[in-house]
Amino acid sequence: MKIAFTTKGAKWDAQMDTRFGRAQFILLYDDSTDSFTSIDNSAVENVAHGAGPQTAQKLFDLKPNVLITGNGPGGNAATVLTKAGLKIYIGAGDMTVRQAYEAYKQGELKAF
């Protein structure tokens, strides 16, 4: 299973990014192979409009099964993510990626 995180860094111990559309990085963890990839999303900072749908489109192409984030996506992004059919968990904004993953496994995160 592939899990995507919105984060502020490319490491397992990086802080989560509470924002969805303007998240600095997207980390992708595949627990079946224990492999880890990071996607630099910082270019979105220069985007005045439509950051949400743009980041959502990246996730659409990455095809994770689960998204773990902070505040949750806005309306436009949520429309795209619904089409991608992934499960969204929110409330991990103050955690590190590792903590967020543990919290998710323990069922402690709120479904969006």
């Binding site: 743009q54 489109q57 659409f60 795209v80 089409k83 991608a84």
Partner: peptide, 11 residues
């Protein structure tokens, strides 16, 4: 970013 191509469709 008002038009997005998502797989087989345009949103």
């Amino acid at each position: 970013h008002a038009v997005l191509k998502l797989g087989e469709q345009i949103m």
